[in-house]
């Protein structure tokens, strides 16, 4: 049998995944299931929703109620599921392009509504599934198949965007720091409201190759060398932080949750009318 975790939460007969060797998505997917295990959630009440992309293939391997939707629209489907049945724990898996390009509008509005979903964006800085076109997360001057001379678009900071749009729990981990992803997802699920976890992933096949970042190991090493925890960063100078990125919990500020607020309306009306 595969490990107990895989045995319990994965559809082991579908493994190994279609992902390329060393793709960070598998590591992050596992980190999510560890969070589910540690919280002891009832798998029958867990729903995993995704869009379209390499990352969005994850739900097919997970033994929950799983929904692989259309490109960019996962949060809108998930909103319908959660509002219809608030008993379900709804987890949303999206790619960086999926969530912030085609799904950008759904993304900011789901943050704003503060509906109790936990979204994890697998950020590999590229459109993996379609073969390496630049995404809103491809760093400036990096290359993609549609940016042969270097990308001149500016990038989003997914976490800043989520926090500004109203997400009540926000954090970032990486595939190297898989334990950080687990603890953020755990707290995200516990947060009654919209939680956004950015998980930096590696696409060695397209982003790595196009930008001469080396193979899977080099990409993990880059994450290890450049991630700085929020607490460590507090003691560092701007010069020391140059070229680094932060990981950890950025925002944890509970606010009234959407489905609860809606239930209040129902209760008030029914108390009055019936």
């Amino acid at each position: 049998m595969p490990s107990q975790l895989v045995d319990q939460y994965f559809r082991a007969d579908k493994l190994p995944q279609i992902w390329c060797p060393g793709c960070g998505h598998g590591i992050i997917t596992r980190a999510i299931t560890v969070a589910i295990e540690q919280l002891g959630l009832d798998p029958d009440k867990v729903c995993v929703v995704s869009g379209i992309g390499c990352s969005s293939r994850a739900p097919g391997y997970l033994d929950f109620n799983t929904l692989h939707t259309t490109h960019g629209r996962a949060l809108a489907f998930a909103t319908g599921i959660k509002l219809a049945n608030p008993e379900l724990k709804v987890i949303v898996i999206m790619g960086d392009g999926d969530a912030t390009a085609i799904g950008g509008n759904h993304f900011i509005h789901t943050c704003r509504r503060n509906i109790d979903l936990t979204a994890i964006i697998f950020n590999n800085n590229i459109y993996g599934m379609t073969g390496g076109q630049y995404s809103p997360l491809t760093p400036k001057f990096d290359k993609g198949t549609t940016a042969p001379y270097g990308n001149i678009d500016r990038t989003f900071d997914i976490c800043d965007l989520a926090a500004a749009a109203g997400a009540t729990y926000v954090g970032r981990g990486t595939s190297y720091h898989a334990n950080v992803v687990t603890s953020l997802v755990k707290k995200g699920i516990m947060n009654e409201g919209f939680s956004l976890i950015e998980a930096i992933s590696g696409c060695p096949t397209y982003y790595g190759r196009k930008n001469k970042k080396g193979g899977p190991v080099d990409m993990m090493q880059w994450q290890k060398d450049n991630a700085v925890t929020v607490t460590a960063a507090e003691k560092m100078t701007p010069e020391q932080l140059e070229g680094k990125f932060l990981i950890g919990e950025f925002k944890n500020k509970p606010e009234p949750e959407y489905t609860k607020e809606y239930q209040n309306i129902i209760n008030n009306l029914q108390g009055r009318d019936v």
Binding site: L67, T79, G80, H109
Partner: peptide, 24 residues
């Protein structure tokens, strides 16, 4: 005891309606 939601656009409205139907 039913639910109404005004989504951010028609694409989302269609998606949310499908999601809700999936829960019954």
């Amino acid at each position: 005891g039913g639910k109404f939601i005004q989504m951010e656009d028609e694409i989302a409205g269609m998606a949310a309606a499908i999601g809700a139907s999936l829960t019954g």
